[in-house]
Simulated assay, not measured.
Amino acid sequence: MASWRGFRWIERFGRQHERDPPQPRAIALDFFGARTSYAELAVRVDRFAAGVQALGMAPGDRLGLFLPNCPQYAVAYYGALKAGLVVVNFSPLYSAQELVAQVEDSGVRTMVCLDAAALYPTIAAVLDSSPLERLIIGSIADELPEPKATLFRLLRRRERTPFRRDAAHVPFGRLLEPGSPRPHAIDPERDIALIQYTGGTTGRPKGALLTHQNLTANARQGLAVDPDPRVVDRVLAALPFFHVFANSAVLNVTLMRGSEIVILPRFDTAQALAAIRRRKVTAIPGVPTMFAALADHPDAAAMDWSGLRLCVSGGAPMPVELAARFERLTGVRISEGYGLTETSG
């Protein structure tokens, strides 16, 4: 297992074709039908790492992610880690006041966000009222397949907000121009990879400092408890990536396995059922309210659940009756997990 220490497994993104049997176009991400192969993800991760280095960011600098679930999250997250940066997750549900407090506490000076009307005005206010110095701004439309991308730009323009064109506003695409990151040494047991804020039970949220080894050890453990860890899964990603549960159980475990992440920006029952049908999803990590919503949907009884093999619930106690009802519906028993943010989830 020594070769998996730290985040050296990022280097494997472009080599999924070496699996047995060979998978020359193994899919890493699916976003409403737009698919990113492991080889393509490896290129984007490298370019983003080179891009943040070109902005003057150095190992140990903090990069904030103020994002819903989207392909840009995975690219920025792994690109930052490859550049030796420390990722800091920010909840898109936070108010400007809460964001300012976390910016000041974490030392973040550069933030990745979207031009979404639900997000950009809030983070723009933070830029003007905190130590934050720069925004890297992407768009959901850039990640959608055609014709969805064109229709999104034409019909949902009100959901996007124009942003200023100055040194404090950097288009996400600029960081994906061709380039290779400068190599640097990472001590996986000492170097911080992620600052994950947790509310605990009292007081303001506090940042848990997680090393590269913390994250990869947790992912290895996730694979170790799987009864069939060699299965190439298609994992529904409706849990928020900015939370430690999805960060570990969806992002890190799935990509370490070489499986596919089926991304939804947020949990919507109809969209989740559509994604399960479209991609024949095999694994669903979730919280009890998600499983209840899926089981209660009028289309659930007519669904073909035969491809589903694994369901994991966390975040809250799973009611016994709900677990039994979901198992009767799908034939899959829900496994319940418990983890602390301070231990990578």
Results as ranks from 00 to 15, higher is better:
Ala141Gly: 05
Pro145Cys: 06
Gly339Pro: 11
Arg15Lys: 11
Val235Gly: 03
Asp304His: 15
Glu18Arg: 13
Gly14Ile: 12
Gly6Gln: 07
Leu329Tyr: 06
Ile334His: 01
Ala292Asp: 05
Val225Lys: 07
Leu215Cys: 09
Ser313Cys: 10
Ala50Trp: 15
Ala58Lys: 06
Asp191Tyr: 07
Met256Asn: 11
Ala54Trp: 08
Thr254Arg: 07
Glu104Lys: 04
Ser344Trp: 02
Ala301Gln: 13
Tyr120Ser: 06
Asp46Cys: 13
Val232Thr: 04
Ala292His: 09
Val235Lys: 06
Leu329Val: 07
Leu294Pro: 01
His297Leu: 06
Arg25Ile: 02
Met1Ser: 12
Gln97Leu: 10
Pro319Phe: 00
Thr198Ala: 00
Pro24Met: 04
Pro288Leu: 07
Arg204Ala: 14
Pro68Thr: 05
Leu209Tyr: 04
Pro227Lys: 14
Trp4Phe: 12
Ala149Glu: 05
Ala58Val: 02
Arg278Gln: 15
Ala224Arg: 14
Trp305His: 09
Leu251Lys: 04
Val253Cys: 10
Leu99Ile: 01
Ala39Pro: 02
Val43Thr: 15
Gly286Pro: 00
Leu119Glu: 07
Leu329Gln: 02
Val332Gln: 05
Thr161Lys: 01
Gly200Cys: 10
Gly84Pro: 12
Glu342Trp: 02
Pro92Ile: 07
Thr201Gly: 13
Arg328Asn: 09
Gly331Leu: 05
Ile137Asp: 12
Arg278Cys: 14
Thr150Asn: 02
Gly79Trp: 08
Phe31Trp: 02
Glu104Leu: 07
Gly173Glu: 00
Arg164Glu: 03
Arg156Phe: 03
Pro298Gln: 08
Pro59Asn: 01
Leu340Gln: 14
Ala238Phe: 06
Trp4Tyr: 11
Thr198Ile: 02
Arg220Trp: 12
Gly314Val: 01
Arg277Phe: 11
Phe66His: 02
Val170Thr: 03
Met303Phe: 13
Val52Cys: 13
Pro265His: 04
Arg158Ser: 10
Thr211Ile: 02
Arg164Ala: 01
Leu127Gln: 00
Thr269Cys: 13
Ala224Gln: 12
Tyr338Arg: 08
Ala149Ile: 01
Gly33Arg: 12
Ser95Leu: 10
Thr202His: 13
Asp228Arg: 09
Gly56Met: 06
Gly203His: 14
Gly258His: 00
His184Lys: 10
Val232Asp: 01
Leu223Asp: 08
His17Val: 03
Arg204Phe: 12
Arg165His: 01
Pro24Lys: 03
Thr282Asn: 12
Glu143Phe: 15
Ile10Asp: 11
Ala141Thr: 00
Asp228Lys: 08
Ala249Gln: 07
Val75Gln: 11
Val244Ser: 06
Gln53Lys: 07
Asn214Asp: 06
Pro92Thr: 10
Glu18Val: 06
Pro181Ile: 10
Leu144Pro: 05
Gln213Pro: 00
Val86Asp: 08
Arg19Glu: 14
Gly315Trp: 03
Glu336Tyr: 09
Ala168Leu: 03
Ser259Trp: 04
Val45Arg: 15
Pro205Ile: 14
Ala28Lys: 12
